[in-house]
Design a protein around this nucleic acid. Structure first.
Lengths: 335, 335
DNA sequence: TACTCGAACTAGAGCGCGCTAGTAGAGCGC
DNA sequence: GCGCTCTACTAGCGCGCTCTAGTTCGAGTA
């Protein structure tokens, strides 16, 4: 920077002004300085910048590398952050790298706020995190912690899915839940409530699972084994999320069960996976882009308006009917 | 830091020493300082650190958010970087955020080196990047550019896969290529060479595609349409990568084509997708962890040993036979 | 006793910027 | 002429840390 200033015949301060696009430099000086900088190959050093201005204007995003829905969210985070003048740094939680570690990395790189995609950490940790920085949790509700929260109205989404299935004549509807996964508890409750509301509580069945393809496959094998043992297949399955639905579809299709002729499957998320099936996956759409935008805005507003109270955004999910749901099979009828 | 020093009754310098895990502080002082720091909630500011020591010890990783194999690589990058004492920053290329932008973000955050996972940028850009910083390209070979390079011996992998299929009696083997995707050109060439070597050049057929599930689905639909128009299905397909293979499997299974009874499918990568099929996907395993480790080591060695020449690591891939490949269907026989 | 030496610790410069408080000088009205 | 304002620019401190070149002190050695 000093080199640029000297070569352009101005002070370092003016160079600084120019690189910050601030008023106070004449057009010609500006051009001259920029030209010189380009020649020298000077680019402002963001570490020094951060240090000097005390603010980094950087948002940290913690995500789980293998969750496809997270990558959908990230796609939405970048443009919104850029629009608001913020940089984004990503840190992944993987097998062997805990969420806490991923978050620490972000924090030590001076992120002013962290956006946590479907965090699985203990509420106490999140609360502590919320105290010491601005934190936004996406998908997972942690009422006890001082963090902003963006999720979709799980109950509404599940209700739409269930109404859809019941309208198609389904009664034997099974739910594969998502274990400790984000939103799972709400979805499970909403499933039970919907079964009750439709007078199907005796048919209600929750099979424990996870938000992974493996879990869908396992459940598929379980259901097939049960069928072979004489217990009829359910006529519809509400999966914990799209990944789980995909796994289930794999296992069933593979075994000759035709979807939706023999059995209907509904996913959750509308991640980019949903389009993979040639017939499309019927699923509950969570608008990843909208959720991402909300998360970014929450973080930025908290940062810029001082100490706002943590807020909650509940977005309405929407059932997207594609090819994996259809009328209840004739043969199956009521159990 | 000053607060910690004062409260612990030592100088800032000593606090610095302790937080850098450097020798020169007694055990008891060390413990006392760390305790005080913990009480105050002090954590070293990495921006100031970078600025002061002139080195960031940070590696930047550019990846494509939706590429599952990239997430497999990332999983391997973290531990190796940590072992060598480096931080990792992730920056994703997405639809709407170019690779160049992702890389700029990394650079301005003071990453000393960038690891590019399957870069699709122009060789000229990569070369320029290689001039101004240490760059490692994973999966994509760019001989014209001054960058390190880690890939697997595509030709060997394809040859193994082809030998396997031919041994099972297949002759009508089609290859869906990966367009401009990393490794595609090599795989395509190797496919052609293998067909020739087995005397099957007349059967060789490369269907243009991409490294995506969509591409697999499209190709599946294409093949099915051709079958309906009278042209027999191939008996085996070598897909451009696992994602493409998965899409293909979806489309075919959906249409009643049983794999591997009616048709064999071989993928490429052995990404975590490969385990999704209940019967498992036969695929060419690229060891993501090993590749990741090589990439990290290349970057670190270049950084620490001054100006080494760019190097190339070629890892041997290995065919993993799972459930999607089997003997050629009786009915099909030789074309 | 006089010294050497190493372990434990400290003073203070400097990393590359941003920012506040300032100056120089041109233009204006009275 | 004077004071005033406005634009264009500058001096220099400080952000929070690392690092070099010390100092202090107690133990060991001749």
């Amino acid at each position: 920077m000093a080199d640029v200033a000297e070569k352009a015949g101005v002070s370092r301060a003016l160079v600084s002004i120019i690189f910050r696009n601030q008023a106070g430099a004449s057009r010609e000086t500006r051009e001259r300085v920029l030209r010189v900088a380009d020649e020298i190959g000077y680019r402002p050093d963001s570490a020094a910048r951060l240090l000097a201005r005390g603010r980094s204007r950087t948002l940290g995003v913690m995500f789980t590398v293998h969750q496809t829905f997270h990558t959908d969210l990230i796609t939405g985070i970048y443009p919104e952050a850029e629009r608001l003048g913020y940089d984004v740094l990503l840190s992944g939680a993987t097998h062997g790298r805990s969420e806490a570690k991923a978050v620490e990395a972000l924090l030590s790189h001076r992120c002013e706020a962290v956006i946590l995609l479907g965090p699985d950490a203990a509420p106490a940790y999140l609360d502590e995190l919320g105290q010491r920085t601005v934190a936004v949790s996406v998908s997972r509700r942690v009422p006890q912690a001082r963090v902003d929260f963006v999720h979709s109205a799980e109950a509404k989404g599940v209700r739409q899915a269930m109404d859809h299935l019941v309208e198609l004549g389904h009664r034997r509807i099974v739910h594969i839940d998502g274990g400790r996964g984000p939103g799972s508890a709400e979805r499970r409750r909403a499933y039970r409530a919907a079964m009750r509301r439709h007078g199907l509580e005796d048919e209600a069945r929750v099979i424990p699972g996870h938000h992974t393809e493996e879990s869908g496959i396992e459940t598929g094998c379980l259901l097939l084994a049960e069928r072979d043992a004489g217990r009829p297949l359910p006529t519809a399955v509400l999966a914990g999320n799209d990944r789980c639905a995909m796994g289930l579809l794999m296992a069933l299709t593979r075994a000759g069960v035709e979807v939706p002729r023999d059995l209907s499957v509904v996913g959750y998320d509308d991640s980019h996976l949903s389009h993979l099936m040639p017939i499309g996956l019927t699923t509950v759409r969570q608008d990843a882009v909208l959720m991402a935008e909300h998360a970014v805005r929450f973080a930025v507003e908290r940062l810029e308006n001082g100490e706002l109270q943590p807020r909650e955004a509940v977005l309405d999910p929407k059932l997207v009917v594609r090819g994996t749901s259809g009328p209840v099979p004739k043969a199956a009828g009521p159990a």
